[in-house]
């Protein structure tokens, strides 16, 4: 028996909007730790890792570890039917081939049940080694989204370079090239508007903008984004989900032949 009650039901709606374009089908794993997902895109270039910790749910019952295969587009369709202020409960019986999403309006005057068919997904689970990153950039998520969108109108790839001057996002295309430099800026009144750069070594990596733009669909989940870079490793783009956990995107770099 599984029963997970999330008062902030719209968090789940936002999570689905953030991942459904990157991944079609995925297993949601439920354990005493929380509700999680790890899935790669079809070309195995990007990976999404989601964790919603059990403590973040108002009620969390998971009698045994369960893996539920879901089509994310279908799940998003169902969650779109929940109101933004609705409480969402995820329910499944042991051995069942369906999952139920229950939506309750805040004043309890409307209760809806949406039952979705589960699917068998044979997915590879990847171990992500702990890593030391050469540079960690924390910036407003809306600013990062703006830069990715702007650069993708000029080119297909972005070079992200971190030096002691700041973080530089560069692209080039048929019509010209573009560079955006963000400097460390901690003097603003609100911490969520600041940019911080923790650099151990300068680093410069090239990535496909198509994937970066897809990651920025998670912007509504968090006011800040953390970008962790090492010359030997995939970049990690992390959006923290307040009091619940995180959504992390890993993207393999492009390498010169």
């Amino acid at each position: 028996m599984l029963e997970l009650r999330l008062v902030q039901g719209n968090l789940l709606k936002k999570v689905l909007e953030a991942v459904k374009d990157l991944v079609t089908d995925a297993n949601f794993d439920c354990s005493s730790t929380g509700f999680s997902l790890q899935a790669m895109d079809s070309s195995h270039v990007a990976l999404v890792a989601l964790l919603l910790r059990s403590e973040g749910f108002e009620h969390y019952r998971c009698d045994r570890n369960v893996s539920m295969g879901m089509n994310l587009n279908n799940m998003a369709k169902m969650l779109k039917c929940a109101g933004n202020d609705d409480i969402v409960t995820i329910k499944a019986d042991d051995g069942s081939d369906t999952v139920t999403f229950m939506f309750e309006s805040p004043n309890q005057d409307k209760i809806a049940d949406f039952e979705m068919k589960l699917m068998d997904i044979d997915s590879e689970h990847l171990g992500i080694p702990e890593a030391e990153y050469h540079a960690i950039v924390r910036m407003p998520s809306s600013e990062f989204a703006r830069i990715c969108k702007d650069l993708s109108s000029i080119g297909d790839t972005v070079v992200i370079s971190v030096t002691k001057e700041g973080v530089k996002f560069s692209t080039r295309g048929d019509i010209g090239n573009a560079n955006v430099v963000c400097r460390q800026n901690t003097t603003v009144d609100k911490p969520e508007e600041s940019t911080t750069i923790e650099m151990h070594e300068p680093v410069s990596l090239t990535f496909a903008l198509r994937y970066m733009n897809s990651f920025t669909k998670a912007t509504p989940l968090s006011s800040t984004v953390t970008i962790s870079l090492s010359s030997e490793l995939p970049v990690v783009v992390e959006y923290k989900i307040a009091e619940m956990g995180y959504i992390r995107f890993y993207l393999a770099p492009k390498i010169e032949d």
Partner: peptide
Amino acid sequence: PPCQNTLRPFFISF
């Protein structure tokens, strides 16, 4: 142009 890596060489499959 630079070529796109996949994630597999970076992560441990199990």
